[in-house]
């Protein structure tokens, strides 16, 4: 792996920091002895759609999980929508309200119906009356095109449907940012498209998205920035057409050749 830092290409456009939705400054994270994130700098403007790729163990999941503090970073600053992520429980609660997350294995709650999955946080976190919560949830279930499944349990749905429910569940909280952690890698091939279609639609509506995925087709259509991570560092980031046609680093080239082969 190259140890060079690609300062010229990787600099995010200089911006007034107050208009940034996510800002990570020199973020470091260790798992025991293992250095999982090394001096990560990342600035995300509202409306940006960022695709993050890289080999497994490169720190891409860890990075986005730090943004809603499913993982605790040990050094550096993370500021989400003007709220600084510290141990302060109130800050953590506030950030989690603003940030939606979609997991690789959906993490739907199997003992609750689809509807209950969606209304849970509205009722208990946003303290919304049950009726309003159900109306809101129905709106988002319609958006992901499964309103008819509302009374079923997650176990009765296909993987693709479950993932769309998970997306609707996050959208219910009306988040400013959506994080996707490999949303399609646990799905059978024929179900990937239905999930990607929902994500594309979301992008077109202007949602700020950070997406860890290896769906390069998705990256080409939707992303306005593609990022390659390796060894806990952001190696390279660029606009999608530049990134795919003219990667700067040999490590990126090798990775792209490996995943684009098939």
């Amino acid at each position: 792996m190259t140890t060079l830092r690609a300062d010229a290409v990787n600099q995010a456009p200089n911006q007034d920091p107050r208009s940034l939705i996510i800002e990570m400054k020199q973020v470091n994270k260790w798992f025991g002895e293992f250095h999982a994130l090394k001096d990560i700098d990342l600035s995300v403007e509202p409306g940006e759609r960022i695709v993050i790729c890289g080999p497994s163990g490169s720190g891409k999941s860890t990075m986005i999980r730090c943004i809603n503090r499913l993982e605790e970073h040990q050094k550096g600053d993370i500021i989400v929508d003007g709220i600084e992520l510290t141990a302060d429980v109130k800050h953590i609660d506030n950030v989690r309200r603003e940030v939606g997350m979609v997991f690789q294995h959906f993490n739907l709650f199997p003992h609750l119906t689809v509807m209950e999955n969606c209304t849970l946080a509205l009722i208990w976190v946003r303290r919304m009356p049950k009726k309003d919560a159900e109306e809101a949830a129905m709106k988002y279930l319609e958006r992901v095109k499964i309103p008819e499944q509302a009374q079923k349990y997650p176990g009765q749905l296909s993987g693709g449907q479950q993932q769309r429910v998970a997306i609707a569940r996050s959208l219910c909280m009306n988040p400013k940012v959506m994080l996707f952690d490999e949303p399609t890698s646990a799905l059978d091939p024929e179900m990937i498209k239905e999930v990607l279609d929902v994500m594309i639609e979301l992008a077109e509506e202007g949602m700020t998205m950070l997406c860890v995925t290896h769906e390069m087709g998705f990256a080409k259509t939707v992303a306005n920035r593609v990022m390659f991570m390796d060894g806990g560092e952001i190696v390279e980031q660029n606009k999608p057409d530049e990134f795919f046609t003219n990667p700067q680093y040999d490590r990126t080239k090798l990775f792209l050749s490996q995943i684009l082969q098939h």
Binding site: G76, D77, E84, T86, V89
Partner: peptide
């Protein structure tokens, strides 16, 4: 943990709690 921040009120600090 980031060292140089605004101080966390003690009742919202999970360690103190």
């Amino acid at each position: 943990m980031a060292e140089h921040h605004t101080k966390i009120p003690w009742h919202r600090n999970p360690k103190v709690r």
